[in-house]
Amino acid sequence: MTNNMITLNNGIEMPALGLGVFQTPPDVTTTAVTEALAAGYRHIDTAAAYGNETEVGNGIRDSGIEREEIFVETKLWISDYGFDAALHGFEKSAAKLGVDYIDLLLLHQPLTSRFDLTIEAYRAMEKLLSEGKVRAIGVSNFMPEVLIRLLAETTIVPAVNQIELHPYFQQKELQALHAEHGILTQAWSPIGGITSYGGGDKSALQDPVLLGIADEHGKSPAQVMLRWHLQHGRSAIPKSVKAHRIIENFDVFDFELTDQNLTAIDALDTGVRGGPEPDSITLENYGMPIPEA
């Protein structure tokens, strides 16, 4: 079993499928990471705000797999925006992860109420890229108008925009903008988990369309959704702490959805976001100190 590779806009190759560790408690993160790497994953996504970068680093070292074989992705939190603060935010993350470089560093949210700090943080990441401390830079949860503003005020086009994306919320306008500028769309909550744990009453895992396609291919609805992302050329970072689910989520490279399958899943879009509105993320509401390593 192999992990499809995606070439980013700066020529760096990244495994399309990765393990996400959002809301994964630190005491189970290390095991989840080692189990994922044993199952064949070579891409781990974390963030300073998750509070588990140290445990991700422990899992990478415990795996026995060479650092160069693992694509490590993390994100700076809004409390560390600004030029010097972002440089220090990188140092904190690298130290917690126990790595000399980070493969992909993202701005976790657009701080639209202080966009000057957002721009300065991105310029700090441009500096880190030029120094070889990160291999690629990008953003997360940047909506079209904010992404266009970032492109106008910075030099390097983001390699990735990591956004909420699943069959019920597909952000097609934003995906089209990504395609126009050579930015990879990376899906968080790729199997629609946020529609369940986000307080919603509609679970993609129980959707009759997805169940029917899953039966057709002898796969689970989660595997069908992940395959849908991959065939549309996206990256996806499913999250699980259960070993059998971690393995199942990676077992998506031995089948192919038909054009009819893809069209049927595309038609499930409701346009309803499960996560917070990006503009609601402010220092007053979400600012928190990111601890030192």
Rank of each mutant, 00 (worst) to 15 (best):
H178Y: 11
H178R: 12
H178I: 15
E180V: 15
E180F: 13
E180K: 15
E180N: 06
H181M: 06
H181C: 11
H181D: 14
H181I: 13
G182K: 14
G182N: 15
G182D: 09
I183F: 14
I183A: 15
I183T: 05
I183R: 13
I183E: 11
L184C: 03
L184E: 06
L184Q: 00
L184R: 11
L184K: 06
L184V: 14
L184F: 12
T185K: 03
T185D: 14
T185E: 07
Q186H: 07
Q186W: 05
Q186D: 08
Q186V: 08
Q186A: 08
Q186S: 12
Q186L: 13
Q186C: 08
A187T: 07
A187I: 10
A187Y: 11
W188S: 01
W188H: 13
W188N: 07
W188C: 06
W188G: 10
S189L: 03
S189A: 13
S189K: 03
S189R: 05
P190R: 09
P190A: 11
P190N: 04
P190S: 09
P190M: 08
I191V: 12
I191H: 02
I191K: 08
G192T: 04
G192W: 04
G192D: 02
G192Q: 04
G193M: 03
G193L: 01
I194H: 08
I194G: 02
I194Q: 09
T195L: 04
T195N: 01
T195K: 02
T195W: 03
S196Q: 01
S196N: 07
S196V: 00
S196D: 00
S196Y: 07
S196L: 00
Y197A: 04
Y197H: 08
Y197E: 08
Y197C: 08
Y197F: 05
Y197D: 09
G198T: 03
G198Y: 01
G199L: 11
G199N: 11
G199Y: 10
G199H: 12
G200A: 06
G200F: 00
G200L: 01
G200E: 04
D201H: 01
D201F: 02
D201S: 09
D201A: 07
D201C: 01
D201Y: 00
D201T: 12
D201K: 05
K202H: 04
K202I: 00
K202S: 00
K202Q: 07
S203W: 04
S203P: 04
S203V: 02
S203G: 07
S203R: 10
A204T: 00
A204D: 00
A204V: 02
A204E: 03
A204M: 01
A204L: 07
L205N: 10
L205P: 09
L205H: 09
L205W: 07
L205E: 10
Q206T: 13
Q206F: 14
Q206S: 12
D207G: 09
D207R: 05
D207Q: 14
D207K: 11
D207V: 13
D207S: 11
D207Y: 06
D207E: 09
D207A: 12
P208C: 15
P208S: 15
P208I: 11
P208W: 13
P208R: 15
P208G: 09
V209I: 10
V209P: 07
V209L: 04
V209Y: 01
V209F: 07
L210C: 12
L210D: 09
L211Y: 10
L211G: 09
L211Q: 13
L211W: 04
L211T: 14
G212M: 11
G212T: 10
G212L: 06
G212A: 14
I213Q: 11
I213Y: 11
I213P: 07
I213W: 14
